[in-house]
């Protein structure tokens, strides 16, 4: 007879583990496209593994998670086994996300790549905007920049590979698409993603009790504040 625990072991998604230097391991469960189910496993694993004595930081990504540990800690030698055990036994729970609406000025000077995405995808600019606002997105992870949300749910028809070389300066509030992902710039910074619009929502403030506005599990809807060619 199969115990509940064996069943859990069976249902954990397969992972690849790679070194990220001598004090971090990257666990990658990504398949050919993003999976919400795998992401729930990532969240559950991240909550548990952060309690381990040698673990100093846990960075959930998109269907992957970077675990940083102190390589000089006494239990660091067995960290790989600890990770594998926790991965197999992580039990995804319900994450109750809050709902946010983000109004966007699409195109024009503040959305300079909208036309390029439309051309790449063989759609009109209006159709790209329609598809971008029609989808409902879920915050999969926060990262890259302070408060930057990685969102799942982008319509694959408006995906476009990242730029060959990042731009040195993309303004705070820029709404962007990179590969099969979309997001909003929380600060002015370099980025290799394409800019389709601009919003006034402030995603990060270090003086707030919760500096990041959004958290994993939150639900996002983009709305049209305006469209320019």
């Amino acid at each position: 007879m199969m115990s509940a625990r064996d069943k859990t072991v069976e249902s954990a998604p397969p992972i690849r583990i790679a070194h990220a230097g001598s004090g971090a391991l990257l666990l990658d469960a990504a398949g050919s496209s993003f999976s919400d189910q795998i992401q729930e496993h990532i969240w559950a694993f991240s909550r548990e593994i952060s309690k381990e004595a040698c673990v100093t930081e846990v960075v959930p990504g998109m269907n992957n998670v970077l675990v940083i540990y102190d390589p000089l800690h006494p239990t660091a030698g067995t960290v790989r086994d600890i990770l594998l055990h926790n991965w197999a036994n992580a039990t995804p729970g319900s994450v109750s996300g809050r709902a946010f609406e983000i109004p966007v000025h699409y195109g024009g000077e503040s959305g300079e790549d909208l036309a390029a995405i439309a051309a790449f995808c063989g759609l009109s600019s209006e159709e790209v905007v329609r598809r971008h606002t029609q989808a409902t997105y879920r915050v999969a992870a926060i990262g890259a920049m302070p408060g930057f949300p990685y969102l799942s749910g982008l319509d694959p028809a408006i995906a476009m590979p990242r730029r060959d070389s990042p731009r040195a300066r993309v303004s705070a509030g820029a709404v962007i698409i990179g590969g099969s992902q979309t997001g909003v710039m929380p600060t002015t910074a370099p980025s290799g993603w394409h800019i389709i619009g601009q919003t006034e929502i402030k995603l990060f403030d270090p003086d707030r009790v919760e500096p990041a506005l959004l958290a994993p599990g939150d639900i996002i809807q983009f709305t049209v504040a305006g469209i320019e060619e």
Binding site: V59, P60, L66, I68, Y150, D164, P166
Partner: peptide, 18 residues
């Protein structure tokens, strides 16, 4: 390779499309 975004540490050597 078009990878999903993932955590990186200082010292990571990336090879962008360039």
């Amino acid at each position: 390779l078009e990878l999903l975004s993932h955590g990186i540490v200082p010292g990571t050597i990336q090879i962008p499309p360039s």
